[in-house]
Write a protein that binds this DNA or RNA. Structure first.
Lengths: 130, 130
DNA sequence: TTTATAAATGCAAATGATTTGCATTTGCAA
DNA sequence: TTGCAAATGCAAATCATTTGCATTTATAAA
């Protein structure tokens, strides 16, 4: 475990605010676009800020099957999503259905399980009627 | 649904053989390296072959959290893995623990679930003793 | 309050996995 | 045997993300 020193800057504050308001995981691009509306910021600054926020455990990151990394506030609760293949809408599951399972698998296999990713994909009720 | 026409070529045959022998998901690089030992082949050919094999449902692909795509024979059974963060060894779970869950979630949310990805990460019993 | 240091930033260039354009070769159906 | 589209090699492009470098700035210590 290593100590990570961080400074408070306007830009990082803005990013943190976006996460606090957001109700879904956000990509670097989404965050960049929101920021661009009100301040001048470079995309690499966004990436660096995101990485420090991940290091300090303020947010978590997850690489989705579409090849894009999504970030969201880390409330220390596992989250999983239903992603619509048509409209890309995202529905957050209320609870992690995997934790028990993970423990079970850990016992069976001898692995110490530290993380898991679970992503469902399909068609949301909205799109299915189109 | 679209008809995909495919030809039998030496190189594609070799790739198919690799998949039949393989006991774990393989990355494009791994396949490329194996092929290079016996034949002359270009990496982009490997990628194109992999993509046609995915299109014809001979193999499936999955993007892992390490940013690399892994391919494996499609036996129409969901598979999930335990990936060791230290030695990168991979253990295949004997069954998909999610199918029931997916049905449940589908009922609750109204989503038609067509796919899911589940990946556990941690430390394998081998590495934990080091 | 001043100062020193390392974190934050912008910009351009690099990276790494994967894809693509183009010219050429080749499998295979007619 | 022939024609066409699929397969291939090669180089260049792509796309998300990272990095090197010079500059700015937050912050802790003097």
């Amino acid at each position: 475990m290593q100590i990570i020193k961080t400074r408070n800057t306007l830009k990082k504050e803005k990013i943190i605010k976006i996460f606090k308001r957001a109700e879904k995981p956000m990509s670097s691009q989404e965050i960049y676009c929101i920021l661009k509306k009100t301040i001048d910021i470079n995309l690499s600054t966004v990436y660096r800020a995101l990485n420090t926020l991940v290091k300090t455990n303020f947010i978590t990151k997850e690489l989705r099957q579409n090849g894009i990394t999504y970030y969201e506030i880390n409330d220390h609760i596992h989250k999983h999503y239903l992603v619509c293949n048509k409209c890309n809408s995202v529905l957050k599951l209320k609870e992690c259905p995997i934790d028990n399972l993970a423990m079970e698998i850990s016992k069976k296999t001898g692995y110490t399980i530290t993380d898991h990713e679970l992503e469902f994909r399909g068609i949301c009720p909205n799109c299915i009627n189109k």
